[in-house]
Computed example of a mutant assay.
Amino acid sequence: MTRTVYINGQYMAETDAKVSIFDRGFLFADAVYEVTAVLEGKLIDNAGHIARLTRSCQELGIPMPISAEELTEIQRSLIEKNQLHEGGVYLQLTRGSEGDRDFSYSEDIKPTLVLFTQARELIHSPVAKKGIKVLSMDDIRWRRRDIKTTSLLPACMAKHIAHQAGCDDVWLIEQGYVTEGGSSNAYIVTDEGKIITRPLSNDILSGITRASLMLLAKDCGLVIEERAFTIEEAYQATEAFVSSATTFIWPVTHIDDHEIGDGKPGPIAAKLREIYIKTSLEMAE
């Protein structure tokens, strides 16, 4: 089935969708994006995603062309038009186009807004059951990782290298400490059952799933410590896992050549994933 997509106020078939070759998102990755999960045709944690989008736009000086309410209505319309039951809604906002390639831009440039849906199995993902293997490598991204931009080439290359090495994903390392995954936040669990994750800063993305997960973990009586941890400490962890909008929580069973715990998905990751999905369905918009 041909999807219906949204571009700058219009719904159209994906085969008819066009953006200018002079758009700054295409030429300079001068753009931000968000991905909101969809379960049972409803948006998950969407208010957090729109709030983060607004912040990213403010940090880069890209004006929001429509209100948060209008944006949510477009997302819901696309879910309905494409009969999406489970998957995600991708949203990208670029600074726009002024007619030719130029590093500089005027303040009154009109943004380009694009949205489309992606069908994907989320709840019964096979990866969530078996866990993932990750490869560690240097984090070479820019220093404003808290802004969710489309400048994803370093992450794409890192993931590709990981796949070539027989791994599923990557954990990025800076000065010996884990920053985050290729497109996720990273966590380890100590022998005492304490969950460790890096604190928020310009060095990592403020994950929306991460924020919900932190609250749920505390409600379950789990202890969370926000601090940097080394890759060597991760090797010795009893569990490890990642979180993101469309993975929710995936256990990490291997890091580099090291088996984590017994090499199988751990109970804390499994418990948090189950609670997150249950809570998300209850609160879905």
Rank of each mutant, 00 (worst) to 15 (best):
R95E: 09
G9W: 11
K264L: 13
L281M: 14
I204V: 12
E34H: 02
E14T: 05
T15R: 14
T253D: 09
E98F: 03
H254D: 10
P251D: 01
Y11W: 06
T112F: 09
L113H: 03
T190C: 04
F22V: 14
Q92D: 01
L215Q: 15
T230V: 03
T54N: 12
I140M: 14
I79D: 10
L216E: 05
E192S: 07
P267I: 04
I44A: 08
Y11N: 07
G221V: 09
D30C: 08
S183W: 11
A245N: 05
T197M: 00
A270P: 02
L215D: 15
T4Q: 13
R76N: 12
S77Q: 14
S67Q: 09
S104M: 14
D100H: 13
R143E: 13
L39S: 10
G48K: 06
V134G: 00
G181P: 00
K129I: 07
E274P: 05
A29G: 13
A270S: 15
Q236A: 09
D219S: 15
F248P: 01
L153W: 05
H160V: 06
P199R: 14
T150R: 08
Q175H: 13
R95L: 13
V134T: 01
Q164P: 07
A13M: 11
A29S: 12
Q164K: 11
A228E: 14
V5L: 07
I255G: 00
N82C: 06
S67C: 13
I196K: 02
E73S: 14
D191E: 13
R141C: 08
Q10L: 11
P199L: 11
E34F: 07
T36C: 11
E239C: 03
K18H: 08
I249T: 03
Q83D: 13
Q175P: 01
Y90A: 08
T149S: 11
M64Q: 15
P154R: 02
L281Q: 13
D100T: 15
H49A: 07
T15F: 08
S67T: 15
N202H: 12
D23A: 06
R145P: 10
A240E: 01
S183H: 05
S151W: 04
R210H: 10
G266I: 00
I79G: 07
I268L: 10
D219A: 14
M1P: 08
G263A: 00
F26R: 09
A13V: 10
E285I: 11
M214E: 15
D16P: 03
T238P: 02
E107C: 10
A162V: 02
I173G: 06
F116H: 12
A31E: 02
T15Q: 12
L122P: 02
L216P: 02
